[in-house]
Amino acid sequence: MTKVKSLADLRKMKEGLESKLNLREKSNNPESLVQIRVAMATCGIASGAKTVMEYMIDELEKRNIEAVVTQTGCMGYCYAEPTIEVTLPNQDAVVFGYVNEKKANEIIEKYIKNNELVDGIIPVNYETIKK
C-alpha cells in the first residue's frame, strides 16, 4: 500500500474516499437534500424501476446534485409504473409516472435543478393514515 506522504496527499485521499461514506453522511439529515423514492414493488421492477433507480443515482452524482435515492414499496399507481416520488427541500412530494431514462433526465434537468414542473405528474389522491 502506498504511504501518505503529506497533508495534501491525505486530503486528496480523503476526497476520493468520501464518496464511499456519502450515502451514510447524507442519510443523517435527509430533510435538507433532494429525496427521491423509487417504487420498487414487483410491478415497478418489472417495468424497469431498477434501471431508472440506477440511472438516477449515477446521473445525480455526475451532475453534482446532493440527493438521497431510496426505494420504497408499491405506491399504488401500478398503471403508471415505474413511478418515483421527488421531495425537494421544504416542499411537498411530487409523484411522477411512466419514468424511463429519458423522463428521468427531464425530471433532473427541469424539476430538480430549476423547480419547473414537467409532464407526467400524478396528482396525489390519497391521504396517509397517521397511526
Binding site: L7, L10, R11, K14, L17, K20, L21, R24
Partner: peptide, 25 residues
C-alpha cells in the same frame, strides 16, 4: 457509523486531518 477495521472510512470522516494540520501548520 464507520467500520473500525477500515482506516479509509476513518480518513473519509476527516481522520488524521488534525494530525496533518498539527504537523505541518
Amino acid at each position: 457509523f464507520i467500520d473500525p477495521e477500515n482506516i479509509d472510512e476513518y480518513i473519509a470522516r476527516d481522520g488524521y486531518e488534525a494530525l496533518g494540520k498539527v504537523l505541518t501548520e
